[in-house]
């Protein structure tokens, strides 16, 4: 059991540090690589939560397909690093009004989250101790193709629409 806690904290640290580097890094290529590392940490967390299918999909779809798409765009556009001096001059959050309202909203959200967390039952007990985990792919597929059939079909329409949209948007206009 101690090793599970160790694994959790290792994966959680990898995820959070990766995410922080994504936001703090000015070079988009490094941001992207750090995001892939963060997704690997999340994959480990899914394994700990006994969701092996999601762990695999996380790597194949997220770290594989989506991140390669991002990487292609970063490389094709030859994205420049963000200029720190320009950032300091032009960032809208440095307007005093935006700063105050934003700080107030962030504080409100933090308080609300803390309140919600303090009222959620079963936060300190080990996760799902009295319920067995549903981790079989057969069960997942059965629910996906019975209860969630409609949502599944709508998703396929959404993906076709997104595909056509992406092709139309990124096509070169020759008129």
């Amino acid at each position: 059991m101690a090793s599970e806690a160790l694994l959790f904290y290792a994966f959680a640290a990898a995820t959070v540090i990766g995410a922080i580097i994504v936001v703090a890094q000015r070079n988009p290529v490094y941001s992207l690589m750090s995001l892939v590392g963060s997704f690997f940490g999340l994959c480990g967390l899914y394994v700990l939560l006994e969701a092996p299918f999601l762990a695999v999909v996380q790597i194949i779809v997220y770290a594989g397909a989506i991140m390669v798409l991002f990487l292609f765009v970063v490389m094709v556009l030859n994205v420049p690093r963000e200029d720190a001096a320009e950032w300091d001059r032009s960032h809208p959050l440095f307007r005093p009004m935006a700063m105050r309202v934003g700080a107030a909203l962030a504080l409100l959200l933090t308080v609300e989250l803390g309140w919600a967390l303090s009222r959620t039952p079963g936060l300190t007990a080990p996760i799902g101790e009295d319920r067995p985990a549903v981790s079989s792919m057969a069960e997942l597929g059965r629910v996906l193709f019975t209860e969630y059939m409609f949502a599944f079909e709508v998703t396929s329409i959404l993906i076709i629409a997104a595909m056509v949209g992406a092709v139309v948007l990124s096509r070169k206009r020759d008129d």
Partner: peptide, 16 residues
């Protein structure tokens, strides 16, 4: 995850 994939495709096309 599927919606995120669609979002990334359209978003990146817009960025281009």
């Amino acid at each position: 995850m599927t919606v995120a994939a669609a979002e990334a495709a359209v978003g990146l096309a817009l960025v281009i």
